[in-house]
Design a protein around this nucleic acid. Structure first.
Lengths: 197, 197, 197, 197
DNA sequence: TATGAATGAGGGTTCATTCAT
DNA sequence: GATGAATGAACCCTCATTCAT
């Protein structure tokens, strides 16, 4: 009887926007540009999204959810005991993904600022249903169970996330001040230090 | 007969733009807005700058130059010996300035991203004329003279700068995850650790 | 097999449109709005009407037919002899209906302009099937039978209709220059004068 | 030094809008249409007017001011004593102008509704500086000085204005129910009657 | 018959940039 | 050098209308 909203079209809009946000940033990306890239009429955009900011938020949630889910999922398969190693495993996993997928890296750096990104992720995993499957929870629980002495575990996690975020972008994108693979030892060393005051 | 470019006018344009960029961001600031604020005609803008992006870049250079110059200048007056203490002195100085001058902080966060900022600063002080008066030089020279053992001093400096940058904004602006004064001990502790692998 | 046009649906469309035209005027009313209000799909609209202007015209005819029919019908029940009194009875009846039903009044004023309205009404009753049951006929026949001396009865009727129309809207809606009840004596007085040159 | 706003351009915008408002009404007239007709860039419109409604209001004031000024001015030249004759002189003057200038007549009928028009005019002449040169004042003063017995002179004036307005449009434009010249006797007769209850 | 997704023309508005004065 | 009127491209958004289902 009636035509259904086309998920193919929605996806094309999302991916085109993703691409353009990545290349130029949100402010510089016009809806006209997005629909052109998607081979979709202008009016159609408004059938799926209120404006480009709604689209961005959907994109952020979608992309970061996947990234962190994959990381934690992979961790599960490896039965790593030590919290240090767990954290470094996750960081390493994410760095590897972003190294191969620099479009995603650019999207995150251009549109989220790592600040917003980590905020989103944190929020995402704070409200996780079962009590022990979030990144945030995983960290706090690990600190407690493995008897790690930290004055303020939350601040430590904050510093780790921010250090990784801000530091890795240049390294991956421009090999500055070092290529990422050479930088990793310094980074993981520092993470271990931060976790043992 | 020919009048020279009026430095008074140029300065008014710079400061008005600084104010508006800070309040609304670059994209949202119109040239009309800048010239209105400066009591200058629209056409005049183009006698001084190619467009608002050039103006922004000049502003970045000017503001960060001043910030770092002031910090190093103040350091000189205090005859601090240890490199750890020197670095922390400078970091502390800048944090204090930005805490009091959140307009400047916002400008940096809205228009630069800390990444661009530190890049600028680094560049600024790499090419510093006299060989020993830049922040960068100061650090490398200090490491050498005080016999500090670092595998790669440049990377250490990079990590320090990025950690400070990314970490302090939320703390100053939103007291998250801690107010800046409470966060400082954690931060300075970590800096010392980074300098003694 | 083929289903007929659903009069229920048509009516819902008419009444929804009536409501919206009244509230916002024609130009500001969208077809989307009409079908939403009617719980009908957008495409369905075009099965019943060419566009919203056709719908409006149907609405005009329908609403004004009813108004005048009711007035004349009520007159019949009251066995009033004198033509003056008959005309004033009808005018008074319509004023009373519109005073209580300002939605209808607004619809007429927003979408018809009183000019179109009276034109419609006049047309409506000129072509009335049986020769003596229209307002127009009623007036002309009355003038003849009751031996009223008028140079041009048609012009007199025209002046009465226009005077009433243009004059009563402000009075009912805004009490300007007088509330309708206070204005009535002036109006009916003038009507009587017009009918006795 | 600087270019001046071009009154020629403003006038072209006003007159083009006047023409289009007349032909299609305000709602149906687009700014695009106005600037096309004026051979002016779209942006230029906003240099002169906030939107088309501001333009309309300026047009109303301008056109009606002129019309009434001319009428009263002409009246002055003719030393007519009796108020009846004065009022009829002005009405006649305006009818004659509008008969020759049906574009103006259409503009008034399409965009103002005679209601708004008379309101404007009334306002215009109520606030007239010198105490006796407005139409409104002229009427009230005349009633008083010439000892004309009216229960409520304001209402009488209202009825006259509305009767003339609503009645003459059809007559001028469509010769319905009579050509204007043939209608005048009926109209002026009625005006005299209204002024002598 | 009925649906509502899709379309794209068209409207209002802003603004960087040019250029006559 | 300085001005600000003029331009027109580009943006966002709405909506009548079509048409596959």
């Amino acid at each position: 009887m009636k035509r259904e909203k086309d998920p193919e079209k929605e996806n094309r809009l999302l991916e085109s926007a993703f691409k353009l946000f990545t290349e130029k940033g949100i402010k510089e990306t016009s809806i006209q540009g997005i629909v052109d890239e998607s081979n979709v009429a202008k009016g159609t955009f408004y059938l799926y999204f209120k404006d480009k900011y709604e689209l961005r938020d959907i994109l952020i949630e979608k992309k970061s959810k996947k990234l962190f889910n994959d990381a934690v999922c992979e961790l599960r398969k490896n039965y790593i005991k030590s919290l240090d190693d767990q954290i470094i495993f996750i960081v390493n996993y994410i760095i590897n993904v972003l190294s191969k997928n620099t479009v995603l890296l650019k999207f995150i750096s251009k549109n989220l600022s790592w600040g917003v990104f980590s905020q989103t992720v944190t929020k995402l995993y704070q409200k996780s249903e079962s009590e022990d499957d979030g990144f945030y929870q995983l960290f706090l629980k690990g600190v407690h169970e493995q008897n790690i002495k930290l004055k303020n575990p939350e601040v430590t996690l904050y510093m780790i996330i921010e250090l990784v975020s801000s530091t890795c972008f240049n390294s991956i994108m421009y090999n500055e001040p070092l290529p990422i693979e050479e930088y990793k030892p310094f980074l993981y060393d520092t993470i271990r230090k931060l976790m043992h005051e």
